[in-house]
């Protein structure tokens, strides 16, 4: 799918009608994610109950790719256990940065964001919410895409 059609079909839908947008009064877990390069900033509030993500919402100022990724992520991880969520974070990250041609069909709708792979400078935008979720669940409070050294390297070798 061309990037323009990704924008048209998926990203903009989530951009206009982001799922799980807002904040929680007393979240059990919280983190703020920054992408200093483009000024993206998202706040993630999570309520964990018995090791499961019971409630998860986000808000912030960001580009459409980051917002869509946040929106899709919150839908995807709601109800999942912490381990399942961590595994999904890892797989999502792999999909965007790995050089192997693995099959990511099991990621379902999230797979549409794989198109961002071709744009190394935008990979960080898509990954930011996932980093932020990891930070929230581990109570580190803040996430930045700068700490992930892999993201600064060219992603796919299709040039």
């Amino acid at each position: 799918m061309s990037l323009k059609s990704i924008y048209q079909e998926v990203i903009l839908d989530h951009n206009r009608k982001p799922r799980n947008y807002g904040s929680l009064d007393h979240p059990t877990h919280h983190a703020t994610g920054h992408n200093p390069l483009c000024g993206d900033r998202i706040d993630l509030d999570v309520n964990m109950l018995d090791g499961r993500i019971e409630e998860i919402v986000f808000q912030g100022e960001s580009c459409a790719i980051c917002k869509a990724s946040s929106s899709m992520m919150t839908s995807a991880v709601k109800g999942k256990s912490r381990q399942e969520a961590e595994a999904l974070i890892q797989e999502f990250r792999d999909m965007l940065v790995s050089r192997e041609n693995k099959d990511f069909d099991h990621l379902g709708r999230l797979k549409v964001l794989a198109g961002v792979r071709d744009l190394p400078t935008r990979v960080k935008c898509a990954i930011l919410p996932w980093h932020t979720l990891h930070a929230a669940m581990n109570s580190t409070g803040d996430a930045t895409t700068e700490a992930d050294g892999h993201l600064n390297k060219p992603v796919a070798n299709n040039y």
């Binding site: 483009c38 580009c63 744009l119």
Partner: peptide, 13 residues
């Protein structure tokens, strides 16, 4: 309503 990074990405297309 449109983030500059989205502008740049779409202009690049």
């Amino acid at each position: 309503g449109i983030h500059p990074h989205d502008v740049g990405t779409l202009l690049n297309q």
